[in-house]
C-alpha cells in the first residue's frame, strides 16, 4: 500500500439544475478515520461518489482530489451499504474479484488469509446465499482489504445489519482499516461517536467539524464520553431545519 493521502473536496454539485449540495468544503485527514454524519438527502453519498470517480450523474463545479497531487483513480476502495457480492462466486472468488476484473493473477492464499482475519475461514467456499447479512458484509470488507488501497470510502456499510453485528463489524473494520485514509458516510450518530477520529456534520447549511473524545477508536459503545458525544451529535442532527 502506498502512503495514505489526505482528501480535499470543495465546490458545489447540481443535478438537472437543482442543487445537491454546496457550496462547501471539507478535508479528510491522511491516515485517519473521518465520519461524515448527516441526515438522508443532504448529498453525503454524492461526495463519496465524486471522490471515487463515480460522479457522472451530477454536475460538479469544484475540486475533489488527494492533497499529494496524484490522481485518486486506482487508490480508492469503495464499500457500500449493499455488500455487492456476486451470488455465483464463493467467498474466496468474491474477494479475488478485483484481480480477475483487471486481468491479474488472483492470489487465493492471500484472499483465504484475509477471510481468516474477518473470521470467515470456515466459510471461504460458501456462496453469498449461504451466509448471513453480517457475514456477507465481512466478505465485502475482505474484498476491500484485498484491494489494499490507501483510501477507503465507506457508504453506510453497516446500516443494514442488526445492532450486534453492526457493533462487531465496526470493531473489525476499525482494526483492519487503521492507517488508511477512511471517509465513512453514515446517518447514525452512535456509529460516528464510536468510530470517527474526526467527525464532520453535514446539513443543508454546510459542513461543521465536531470534536470527538480523545483516545483510540473504536471507542467503547457504553463509555460515558462516547455516549455523551453521541448525544451531542444527535442533538445537532435534531436541531437542523
Amino acid at each position: 500500500m502506498s502512503a495514505a493521502p489526505a482528501l480535499r473536496l470543495s465546490g458545489r454539485a447540481t443535478a438537472g439544475g437543482a442543487p445537491v449540495f454546496g457550496p462547501l468544503s471539507l478535508e479528510v485527514r491522511a491516515g485517519e478515520w473521518t465520519c461524515l454524519l448527516g441526515p438522508s438527502g443532504v448529498g453525503k453519498s454524492t461526495i463519496l461518489r465524486l471522490l471515487s470517480g463515480l460522479g457522472g450523474d451530477v454536475a460538479f463545479d469544484g475540486v475533489a482530489a488527494a492533497d499529494d497531487g496524484a490522481p485518486l483513480a486506482g487508490r480508492v476502495a469503495l464499500m457500500a451499504q449493499s455488500d455487492l457480492l456476486m451470488p455465483w462466486l464463493d467467498a474466496v472468488a468474491n474477494v479475488t474479484l478485483g484481480a480477475r476484473l483487471r486481468g491479474e493473477a488472483g492470489r487465493r492464499d492471500r484472499a483465504t488469509g484475509l477471510l481468516g482475519r474477518v473470521g470467515l475461514a470456515a466459510h471461504a467456499h460458501k456462496r453469498p446465499h449461504a451466509l448471513s447479512g453480517g457475514q456477507r458484509q465481512r466478505v465485502a470488507l475482505a474484498r476491500t482489504l484485498m484491494e489494499d488501497r490507501p483510501v477507503v470510502l465507506l457508504d453506510e456499510p453497516f446500516s443494514a445489519l442488526d445492532a450486534r453485528s453492526r457493533a462487531l463489524m465496526q470493531d473489525l473494520a476499525a482494526g483492519l482499516l487503521g492507517g488508511r485514509t477512511v471517509l465513512h458516510v453514515t446517518h447514525d450518530a452512535a456509529e460516528a461517536a464510536r468510530l470517527g477520529q474526526n467527525v464532520l456534520l453535514m446539513t443543508r447549511a454546510g459542513i461543521t467539524s465536531e470534536t470527538p473524545p480523545a483516545g483510540p477508536v473504536p471507542r467503547p459503545f457504553d463509555a460515558p464520553e462516547t455516549l455523551a458525544f453521541q448525544g451531542h451529535l444527535q442533538r445537532q442532527l435534531m436541531e437542523v431545519e
Binding site: A80, L84, W88, L101, R102, G103
Partner: peptide, 27 residues
C-alpha cells in the same frame, strides 16, 4: 448498477466486466 460501479472503482476493463459480471448476471 452497484456491481458495475464497484467494478469501475476496482479498475476493471470493460471486456472483463462483460465476461465476469454482466454475462453471469444475465444467465
Amino acid at each position: 448498477t452497484g456491481w458495475l460501479e464497484l467494478a469501475r472503482v476496482i479498475g476493471a476493463r470493460p471486456a472483463r466486466i462483460l465476461w465476469h459480471i454482466r454475462v453471469p448476471a444475465a444467465l
